[in-house]
Simulated assay, not measured.
Amino acid sequence: MNRILFLLISVLTFITYGCGDSACYKKLIEVDSLTENDMTDSASKVIKTIENTYNIKDGKERAYYSLLKYQLQFRQNYINKNIHVEDSLINYSILYYSNNEDTRNLALSYYLKGRTSKNKEAIRYLKKSEFIANKTNNNSLKMRICGAISTINVDNEDYKTALTYGLKSIEYGKKVNDNETLIQFMLNLSSIYNNVGKYDSAVFFANKCIDYLDKVPPTQKASIYINVAAAIIRSDTIKAKEYALKSLEIRKSNNAYQILAKLARDRKDYAQSETYLEEALKYSPSVDWEAFIL
C-alpha cells in the first residue's frame, strides 16, 4: 500500500512539474517583461545570469531565449554594427514558433527579422509580422510593425503607403503606454506630410508631440523640442523658433543653434545667423558651412 501511495505521489509530482514553466523559462519571462518596459540594461543582466546558470533546453526554452537575446542585440544596436552577425538565433525562433502556436512571439520574431533585413526582404518579413500580429491584441507590437513599414516606404519614396501605415501606427500608439515611440512615429508622420506638401497636417502632428512632453523623461524633452522645430521649420517659423529656444533652456546643442541660424538667415538677419552658427560650433564641428561663409 505504501509503495502504491509513493508511486502515485511521484507521478503527480512529475505531472505537476511538467505542466509548469521551468525556472529557466520563468527567468526568460522576466527578461521579456524588462525589455518591454525599456529596461534593456537590466534585461541584459538577467539573460547573462540565465546563460551562466541554466542549461537552456532545445525547443520552448531555446526559442524564447533566442528571440529575447536577438531582441536585446537589436535594441543595443549590436546587429547594425556587425552586419555579418549570425542570425541563427532569430531563425531558430521563427522555425519553432511557426510549428508551435505562439502568435505574439512569432509576430515579434518576424518583426525583428524585418527590422534587420534590407529592402524587399524587410518588407516581406514585416508584412508577415503584420498579418500574424493582427490575430493578437498586442497594440504595442502592431504600432512598431506599422511604424517600421511606414519608414521603409519613406525610404522607397512610396509616400502613399508610408502615410497609410504611419496613420495606423499612431492609432495603435494611442492605445498603449509608450509615449516616446508614439512621439517618434508622430514626427515621422509629420515628415511624410511635409514630403507630400500637406503642411497643415505636418504642423498638426508635430505640435501633437508637445502634448506628450509631460509624459516622457526630462532627458528626452530637449530632443523632442528640436525634432518638432525641425519638422515645422518651413511651415511655422514662430513656433519653430520657440521650440528651438526651449530646447536650449534644457540642454545646449548644435542642432538647436543650427535651426535658429537657418531661421535668422531666412529672414535675412545674417549677423544673427552667424552668431548662432558660432555657438553651434561649440557643441559639434558640423555646421552648414555654405551658410556660414555667406
Rank of each mutant, 00 (worst) to 15 (best):
I123P: 02
Y283Q: 03
N139T: 04
Y25H: 10
T40C: 05
A222K: 11
S201P: 01
E242Y: 07
E290W: 02
A202T: 04
V46D: 05
L12I: 10
K168Q: 14
N105E: 00
A122N: 09
L187G: 10
F131I: 11
N37H: 15
A261Y: 03
R62K: 15
E249I: 05
R234H: 13
N37V: 07
Y110F: 15
I15K: 07
I152C: 03
G147L: 10
R3W: 02
S88E: 13
F185V: 08
I226C: 00
A261S: 08
L182C: 05
T136K: 01
L34Q: 01
G59H: 03
Y193K: 03
R144S: 10
V203S: 12
A23M: 07
V11Y: 11
D58T: 15
G166Y: 09
R62V: 00
S273C: 10
R251T: 09
S44Y: 14
I183P: 06
L5W: 07
K241S: 14
R251A: 11
V216N: 00
E180F: 06
D158H: 06
Y165V: 12
A261Q: 03
R3Y: 12
I47F: 13
S33M: 14
L260F: 07
I56V: 15
E121H: 08
S273N: 06
D269F: 03
Y159L: 08
S66D: 14
I79H: 06
S191N: 14
I259E: 03
N80D: 13
D266P: 01
E86Y: 02
W289K: 12
N195H: 12
S109M: 04
K113M: 11
I192V: 13
A206H: 05
K81T: 07
K128R: 10
S284D: 14
N139P: 00
S98N: 03
Q258K: 11
I56C: 09
I224M: 03
G147I: 10
L95D: 15
V196E: 05
L167R: 14
D178W: 07
Y257W: 05
Y54T: 09
K268I: 05
M186T: 09
Y64N: 09
S253F: 04
Y243M: 05
